[in-house]
Design a protein around this nucleic acid. Structure first.
Length: 602
RNA sequence: CGGGGCGUGGCGCAGCCUGGUAGCGCACCUGCUUUGGGAGCAGGGUGUCGGAGGUUCAAAUCCUCUCGCCCCGACCA
């Protein structure tokens, strides 16, 4: 391709709206343009990269035995009502009506449609298992789209759905997809981790997320430094030392085994946060217990959650424990509620003396604490030397007691340095990641709701066991940039670069330069290399800047000076240094470097 | 949805407070010079000042409404 003929509107200035690197660079490199909030045009370069990611996904999915289909983007409400998600999905589901006033939605995912297809066309266990996928534009009406392609409303996704006669088959396919995903992201040249994940509102029993490690990631990953454990922080369980058997306590816990002292009361004017209190009273954060008032979304019931001062509540865990308790979907209470419940301004809540109808639930880590500091339920007051016996943890949420659950639960977010929940000996490290893939064991949630059944070998109808597997194709392209860039621009992993090589004749008006460049360009094209010839009549510096910004893995620089000696430069974007080779050797050498890059990136 | 902010040429911005000829840089077009890291000089084109209403002799500027966008928060395969 000739550069002069391509639509590559690069920008010298950063676009004002772009916050993260991938967004900035994709706009500057002329890959995307915004049409509306979270909705973008893909220009030739951007689209080439997206297509390359999609092609890798397609090849690996096919290799894994899946079949590609194409499902509708606009879907009738009936199917969504059948699964129950029409009401449940919320505002992210963009709904619309056709001219006959029939309700539709723009698909954010396709469980309903695929389940409908399979229930109509697949009848027998002999036809199972089956894995169907599509690569398609999806729409989710995100509350706040941001970060360019990382979190758009419209995005390109590969979604796959598998159907099985039994759990064993479904699990086998789950792990088949797990391996397939590893191959896909490896082939894309990405540094990623597969982590245990929460299943969210898709439902199902277990799942893994594939995370590209990057500072700008929105997800936090807990990873063990000695075993292979890795999980989304939302999901990661916390292993608390068993405190029942004192002889087995680690030394640092033993220090907590002090004599319980009587409660005191201190004046802490304006010290609302644990940090402020710790500093004011000269105690470590670990000596404080935070009391957080939560409020149910429905009704106005409140409850108090206790966590150690240096810990944070994991609301996903909390809500899971509270499922079907009447405390559905709790969230941090507003200041008004806090004042009503505790009788003190926000910042001074504590477990001692809370109204009886406010149940107290504590994180397990609190169980090991003695003589800790809590809020006094009174303005500018904290209570040192509080102990668990002082406030009678209310096993009071009746259902907890009824279920034999304790009021000390795993409710906190795991933090760096915690013991690994799996091996127990390793320490947890926290990384940031971008979710590019997610695999779920769905079970029978959709097949039961939508009567997607098969006849087993006895002729009985059974619901199919399902799995579903997503990859954010456009997001993967953005994640690759987050992970591969420098101050000059993008450094594409060769397998997903929009072009593999750029040939840069520094002076297009010099016949010798142009002839040599054209010769190399033609030879590369003939060899099947994706090459672009920068035939623009521009200064050298300009061309270099564009080439670096766009991030071609290899550039071939043809300049008058080197050409006098019959030489050109072959430069690798990632390595930086230039290799001088003869014109006649240039194409072969460049091809070698590209193949090597594609090889090592695999 | 709560809080904050921004809409002025293709892009980035100034002007608004204190109403009175709409500006700067980049980009774009022409010419000459230049030509290995976003050139120099000269000339040129480019704006419903996001939209609607209002105040005023006069509105980019003040007021009201509205639309769009960005940031923080809550939310999220």
């Amino acid at each position: 391709m000739l550069y002069s003929k391509l639509l590559i509107p690069t920008l010298k200035d950063d676009p004002a709206e772009a916050e993260v690197i991938s967004h900035r660079l994709m706009v500057r490199a002329g890959m995307i343009r915004k049409v509306a909030a979270g909705i973008y045009d893909y220009l030739p370069l951007g689209w080439r990269t997206v297509r390359k990611v999609a092609e890798i996904v397609r090849q690996e999915m096919d290799r894994a035995g899946a079949q590609e289909v194409m499902l509708p983007a606009v879907q009738p409400s009936e199917l969504w009502k059948e699964s129950g998600r029409w009401d449940y999905y919320g505002k992210e589901l963009l709904r619309l009506k056709d001219r006959h006033d029939r309700e539709f939605c723009i698909a954010p995912t396709a469980e309903e449609v695929i389940t409908d297809l399979v229930r109509r066309e697949v009848k027998s266990y002999r036809q199972l298992p089956m894995n169907l996928y599509q690569i398609q534009t999806k729409f989710r009406d995100e509350i706040r789209p941001r970060f360019g392609l990382m979190r758009g409303r419209e995005f390109i996704m590969k979604d796959a759905y598998s159907f099985h006669k039994d759990t064993a088959s479904a699990e086998a396919e789950y792990w088949n997809m797990y391996e397939t995903y590893k191959r896909i992201f490896t082939r894309c040249g990405l540094n990623f981790r597969a982590v245990e994940a929460d299943t969210g509102n898709i439902g199902g029993s277990f799942s893994h997320e594939f995370m590209v490690l990057a500072e700008t990631g929105e997800d936090f990953i807990a990873s063990c430094d000695s075993c292979d454990y890795a999980a989304n922080v939302e999901k990661a369980e916390c292993r608390e030392p068993e405190i029942v058997d004192k002889s087995r306590l680690p030394r640092e816990m033993l220090e907590e085994e002090e004599v319980e002292l009587p409660i005191e009361k201190v004046h802490t004017p304006g010290k609302k946060t644990v940090e402020e209190v710790a500093e004011y009273l000269h105690v470590p954060l670990k000596k404080i217990v935070k009391t957080l008032i939560y409020k149910s979304a429905i009704g106005s019931k409140s409850l108090a959650i206790l966590v150690r001062g240096d810990h944070e509540v994991n609301e996903i865990k909390l809500n899971r424990f509270l499922e079907s308790s009447g405390f559905s979907e709790v969230a941090l209470a507003d200041n008004e509620t806090v004042e009503r419940v505790t009788g003190a301004p926000s910042g001074f809540a504590g477990p001692v003396g809370l109204p009886k109808d406010v149940p107290i639930i504590a994180d397990k880590a609190v169980l090991g604490m003695k003589n800790f500091i809590t809020g006094g339920n009174e303005a500018d007051t904290h209570l040192p030397n509080v102990n668990i016996k002082d406030f009678a943890i209310q096993l009071g949420i009746g259902y907890l007691a009824a279920q034999g659950k304790e009021a000390f639960l795993d409710l906190r977010k795991i933090v760096s340095g915690d013991p690994c929940p799996k091996c127990g000996t390793g320490k947890i490290e926290i990384f940031k990641g971008i979710e590019v893939g997610h695999i779920f064991m769905l079970g029978t949630k959709y097949s039961e709701a939508m009567k997607c059944t098969y006849k087993d070998d006895n002729g009985d109808d059974k619901p199919m066991i399902m799995g579903c597997y997503g990859i954010g194709v456009s997001r993967t392209a953005a994640a690759a940039i987050e992970q591969n860039n420098d101050k000059n621009g993008i450094i594409w992993p060769a397998p997903i670069a929009p072009f593999e090589v750029i040939v840069l004749p520094l002076n297009v008006n010099d016949k010798g330069v142009m002839d040599a460049a054209t010769e190399i360009y033609n030879a590369l094209k003939k060899a099947g290399v994706e090459v672009i010839l920068d035939d623009r009549e521009l200064r050298a510096g300009f061309k270099f800047k564009d080439a670096d910004l766009i991030g071609f893995p290899v550039s071939v620089v043809v300049g008058e000076k080197n050409l006098k000696d019959g030489l050109v430069e072959v430069k690798s974007r990632s390595a930086g240094e230039a290799l001088r080779v003869r014109v006649s050797e240039a194409a072969r050498k460049t091809g070698e470097i590209i193949n090597e890059k594609k090889g090592t990136d695999c």
